[in-house]
Amino acid sequence: MNYSEKVMDHFNNPRNVGEIENASGVGTVGNAKCGDIMRIYLDIDEDTKIVKDCKFKTFGCGAAVATSSMATELVKGKTIYEALEVTNKAVMEALDGLPPVKVHCSLLAEEAIHAALWDYAEKHHITIEGLKKPKTDISDED
């Protein structure tokens, strides 16, 4: 495994593993090709729109676990608008990069955040500018 130290750190000590009961938003996405699945839970302050807490569960490779962990870290404390900027690129950079075959895993993290935000927006009947309906949300199938 050609993973950076940061990736290995987040894989070995993943931050924010778990579930949030009655979460403000939940997004589950899967990579159709490799079959991996990631679910992100957001606890969002109604007024400030700040992500107070964020947790994940992941069925996937080392990179999937590490990017989930890093993505939850990056999202926490941000507003839902700022959270949109936690792209796969941002996650990869924060992890000191990923091997080329593992780039798709970081996309999963981006998509999971988007899916959770979409879920929040739908439930609260708001629109978040720039957020599109995630293609790969598979929550329903679960």
């Binding site: 070995n12 069925f59 996937g60 490779c61």
Partner: peptide
């Protein structure tokens, strides 16, 4: 069931 091989391999490797 419910887990993925690469993660398993990394942890065994460790």
């Amino acid at each position: 069931r419910f887990i993925e091989g690469e993660s398993l391999l990394i942890l065994l490797d460790q």
